[in-house]
Design a protein around this nucleic acid. Structure first.
Lengths: 189, 189
DNA sequence: CATCTAAAGCAAGTTGATTTGCTTTAGTGA
DNA sequence: TCACTAAAGCAAATCAACTTGCTTTAGATG
């Protein structure tokens, strides 16, 4: 979460505004529901003029997209040398991401835009979600192993996590995340 | 899709209005994006005064919820006598439901409401999604079999379908739905 | 330090959804 | 057939997000 020093010149005014707005958005996404996540609200919380936000970002969606894109840029691969361990860590990290205060809001932001933008936005969102997975798989391949294809991992790990978080299914925690990986490894196909 | 005779007195005026509004909503959900799915728009399409819609339903969400709740009331179980066949049919039906013109809009409607309502709305939505599954499992049990628990089927069949539809993953068709069921059956755990 | 400029702030406007008070109409029941 | 009532229609007012033209300011450049 590098909200403080985000851009080129850390001290510039725009940089400060940007940071304040990002922070305000993140906060509000966690506390308010989606319909109240409006530009005036974000601007007020950030102590910034609404016009500024309108001119720089235009829509709440764009803002959410930008913040989402920034988020997770700092996660280090941290490969443990064991595929299963890496996958468990990945699953747990993904789950934590989704269940953090405003986590779902960012997901929603990608699902809601109009059809034109949805394609690209979703692709990007999926890309980000998969990025950590690719690192894990690449490391595995580097070890000379033949890990499962990414689509399989999406189906077996990522999809169930998203589904259960979105539908607030009880008992969706670390233990469950581990179970998903375990099931995968006990499965010969 | 029983849009024509929905309520107690089929000929009543309110019943007619209700049907028209439901139909209009379904149509618009299919053609327009979410941000343009507004009460005035629905009212105009239905040939009804916006005020009426405001007073009867209040919000687009409530309307979507009502229509979603009605939808699928008419699906007959149609058990084939074989679990795998039934599950394939269920998976394909679910996929069709999700990919039909406005399918995602209804899903979104459940995910977006404010936190208070979300719980109950989602529970209901999940219930509906699972209803068909329960029928299939019940039939299986009636045959003296021991089918997998429902959570497992959610993880292995429903979740991947939702995920891939939401993220517009290519090649998400009947063949894929069948693959999900096949994977499940080739898996001993 | 003087100047230049991109971005922020401000103050009206504009737009479109939502509300409200009242009238009209279509079904119901005596 | 004639009141009676719940819901629909209408018109005007409200409210909030968004836009726009202009001014101000902070940081960059010489």
């Amino acid at each position: 979460m590098n909200a403080e020093p985000p851009a080129k010149r850390p001290g510039g005014r725009s940089a400060r505004v940007k940071a304040a707005v990002h922070q305000a958005l993140t906060d509000l996404a966690g506390e308010r529901d989606a319909t109240q996540l409006t530009i005036p609200a974000v601007a007020e919380r950030a102590g910034v003029n609404p016009t500024t936000v309108y001119r720089r970002w235009g829509t709440v969606q764009a803002l959410l997209a930008e913040v989402a894109a920034l988020h997770g840029t700092d996660v280090p691969p941290s490969s443990s040398g064991d595929l299963r361990t890496d996958l468990e860590a990945y699953a747990i990290r993904t789950l934590a991401d989704l269940t953090r205060p405003g986590g779902i809001a960012f997901f929603r932001a990608e699902v809601s835009p109009d059809v034109d933008e949805r394609r690209s936005g979703l692709r990007e969102c999926l890309q980000r979600a998969t990025a950590g997975l690719d690192v894990v798989l690449e490391a595995s391949r580097g070890r000379g192993e033949r890990p499962p294809p990414p689509e399989r991992l999406l189906d077996r790990i990522v999809a169930p996590l998203y589904f259960r978080v979105v539908f607030s299914v009880p008992d969706t925690g670390e233990a469950y995340a581990r179970t998903l990986v375990a099931d995968l490894f006990s499965d010969p196909s």
